[in-house]
Amino acid sequence: MKAAVLSFPGSNCDADMTWAIGDVAGQAVKLVSAQATSLAGFDCVVVPGGFSYGDYLRSGAIAKFAPIMPALKDFAAAGGYVLGVCNGFQILTEAGLLPGTLQWNTSLQFICQPTPLIVANARTAFSSAYSEGQQITLPIAHGEGNYYADDATLAQLEEKGQVVFRYAENPNGSRNDIAGLTNARGNVLGMMPHPERAVETLLGGTDGLGVFESLINAMKGAPADVATRTFA
């Protein structure tokens, strides 16, 4: 795997993500500025967490116009794997690469805590290292993680198995307890919890490793059902 981790002004999980993919998962990884205009040579792009452009206007609303975004859209349209975490998820929804919107938590509080999740679909390129129904714990750290989509969109997400992670105890008001989902094609995943913050026991857990292991397996052309699922 050769991953690009995008760095916007205000990103603050880009270094953690680079460390998780490079130092912990042992993959080739490079930090790419949002001012760049090409993603040639990468087979995976990660949009990390933080507060891109200070969350001005809405979280992700300015980032979606960053110079790198046309290249990211082309990369996703060509079937490349894109992982968005936290602010990265918000950016992907604003950019139209994922459906829905992330709104203020119903409590209006910024929530930073380990959060139990259920793996709702283990047949994606991002979750094949887990088993369906498995409970894992990942940290969340967000004020705007309350997933909203209209009824028709939600029904479509459920029907196509696009919901990958659900909160076991919904912390933020997300509809259908959605913590992470893919696009219809299955090559773009957005999730509010931080897998890169749960990759060493020293950090309090290793449940996040599965996301990176799944991606590495997907690159190898792994199980046939994963391939057909994600590139149907």
Partner: peptide
């Protein structure tokens, strides 16, 4: 495209 998120 920018000032409003037409989803919500």
């Amino acid at each position: 495209t920018m000032l409003a998120n037409i989803n919500t």
